[in-house]
Amino acid sequence: MDIFLPCLYSFAACLGYCLRVNLRGRKMVLASLGGAIGWLFYLLFSFTGYELLQYFAGSVAITVYAEVMARVNKTPVTGFLLVSMLPMVPGGGIYHTMEYAVLGDIDAFIRTGLYTFAIAAALAIGMLVVSSPVRLVRNWKNRKEGIRLP
């Protein structure tokens, strides 16, 4: 049960976010499902006891899901990534970082700030690990079509 509820909440949060970023129809549900899948993978990797790895795993899962869904629905991958990544974003970390800054606890501020930064990096690297090979294939196809990209 402690796996199901967080995933459900992240699904609901993503659904709300879709209304804000104007993602419509079937894609709305699919993208929100991505958010739940990401958090599921985060929780599945909790046996490692290493939080950054959990974020990395979630990010990889979301990006794979988003790339597949973008191909299936013939739509830019941007939408799926943007919405599905929302639950992974270290909102708590950002809040606590600034809370320590306001309280004047410089040690805790730097510690939390750097850790939040590390989470963001883990997420970004997870996305890159998947999307870079995809981009390589795409660039290769473009080259075959004679289109030179900047």
Partner: peptide
């Protein structure tokens, strides 16, 4: 209090900007 605030600021947090700036830099 903290949980309510964190939930609320998720609406404002520049979430995707934070991950996409690293993505931009790395690519």
């Amino acid at each position: 209090r903290d949980i309510a605030i964190i939930g609320a600021v998720m609406n404002l947090v520049p979430g995707i900007a934070i991950t996409s700036f690293i993505r931009d830099l790395l690519s």
